[in-house]
Design a binder for these strands. Structure first.
Lengths: 297, 297
DNA sequence: CTATAATTCGTTCATATCGATCACTTTCAC
DNA sequence: GTGAAAGTGATCGATATGAACGAATTATAG
């Protein structure tokens, strides 16, 4: 099974321009294959060989990796998810980072990678933990690794402009799961929002205060765990009223929000996946020209 | 990813001529990579390392992706803590990052910055929260901001070599405080250890399994909260026995370990501050030639 | 299979960097 | 003061890099 890389991917991975890479290929410094139409294709081995020969310890020698998404088919994404899962179980941060950031370099969006690669991998790890197949520390370590990759990823996304619409969010009360809300933050930042996660276990009352102080255009809530449903419903209603009074949209999501519970809640949008959050956020900015006159470029 | 800098950028950023910079590179004062065509490329990591060693001031840090005022601020530890505290309360991530990274550039070590700047600032924020002077979300937001800065900082410290001694750690059972254990990780990585925090709320049993699987030279435990002291004492004893059997040193610390409780625990070292952890870790590597034959260069 | 969007091709061109050299300043021993 | 040694910044022609362009190729969805 030979994985072929495009010049674009390789150039990004080793931190040079596509032009230079093409020149090196043409000079014979880098073993190159050609497609029928004349496009260059590189094997991982050739690239690693080139980096050894020319002695570069370039940007991220390890970055070019394995799933190497040539294209956006579901096959690539599924394989990436499997690879990430195995890397997380083994505690191999390098492979995990390669897997995720390679997809990013291949121009996959945060929702795609989050919903279809990271979420399934973590879900599988969590299942194994529940079944007792894995040690707890492997599950925690997996979360730590993903958390570090998400932080690094955040640094790769352009800092939003000060005029961009603001968004805040987090998890409430007893919910300790930080990764979903981090992914929400990333999703919105990729869309140009000034999104900032306030972390986990926020009491509803302080979230209401935050909405009143910060006045964001959007507030998201990631709900992976609920201790007391009745109390949750009551306090959630207060939060919703507060957001409405502030002109803030309230988007909710998370595995703990099952159908019968959702029926008892009022919110601006329920987002089953990051893709839904992205779509909802986009709809907000496209209509914001009506009420605020600001359009996101 | 690690972005590579050109000599031009770096020379401007530190305010010297390109000629001098090139000479420094060629003399080996500055770790340099080369492109295939022979052009020099520098990592931010190497530049910061050089500036810390040589004591150069940063003229225009924004040119290499650092916050605009890094290198220009007063590098007084005492004032820094106050500045950080105010920035955290206001939710100003930029100022918080500058404050911390400035000190790092001024050759301050992780323990100094952690013990004398970050800890007091967070402690003050926590106090205000307890008194009701601050909203909860301000405290949580502060922790999120510090967490992000620590992640960025982690990326600026050289990646440890594969031969370096390993260390793992985290918080146990019900303790949700992630920042102290992150600072432990940073402290050890600065000393060249392969340190990895496994996160918060680790059951003792899984920590024992982790020690047995990973066989680290050192295991640290940050204890900021204990739900049931009697249970803690019993399980801690099991962990200690396990670490001893594996040849792993067990370092503990944290505000929840008060004097009378400590008397009932056995451990390799109690570290009141990060400085103590650093000292203990150093003592381990300097004596490790006796029992493992490996010396950290 | 076909239509369409996205990517890569080869080329050109402006700019940046290379190594080497030179004039100048500082330091320091005599 | 003098001269050697060392460091700095500026300059040179030659070469390398990165961005832009229309045209051709590939990937993906219908």
């Amino acid at each position: 099974m030979k994985q072929l890389l495009t010049p674009h991917q390789v150039a990004k991975a080793i931190g040079v321009s596509e032009s230079s890479l093409k020149r090196w290929c043409d000079k014979g410094m880098l073993a190159t294959q050609r497609t029928a139409g004349g496009h260059r294709r590189l094997t991982i081995e050739a690239v690693l060989e080139f980096m050894r020969e020319s002695g570069h310890e370039m940007a991220q020698p390890e970055l070019i990796g394995l799933p190497a998404a040539v294209g956006k088919g579901t096959v690539v994404v599924e394989r990436a998810s499997e690879m990430l899962r195995e890397a997380l179980i083994a505690g191999d941060e390098g492979v995990a980072r390669r897997t995720i950031l390679d997809l990013f370099l291949a121009k996959q969006s945060v929702p795609v990678i989050g919903d279809r690669v990271i979420a399934p991998a973590l879900s599988h790890v969590g299942q194994c933990w529940a079944e007792g197949t894995l040690e707890v520390y492997q599950e925690r370590r997996s979360c730590e690794i993903v958390s570090r990759v998400l932080h690094e990823w955040r640094g790769l996304i352009a800092t939003p402009s000060a005029q961009a619409p603001r968004a805040i969010g987090g998890t409430v009360e007893a919910d300790p799961y930080v990764l979903p809300t981090s992914l929400c933050e990333l999703t919105l930042r990729e869309l140009g929002w000034q999104a900032e996660s306030y972390g986990t276990r926020l009491p509803f009352a302080t979230l209401i205060a935050a909405v009143r102080d910060v006045r964001p255009r959007l507030c998201w809530l990631s709900v992976s765990y609920i201790a007391d449903e009745a109390e949750f419903i009551a306090k959630f209603a207060e939060l919703f009223d507060a957001t409405q009074a502030c002109g803030t949209a309230l988007a909710v999501g998370g595995t703990a929000l099952h159908e019968p519970l959702r029926c008892q809640l009022r919110y601006s949008a329920f987002c089953d996946q990051l893709a839904h959050l992205a779509a909802f956020a986009t709809s907000l900015t496209s209509t914001s020209s009506n009420d605020s006159g600001q359009v996101n470029p």
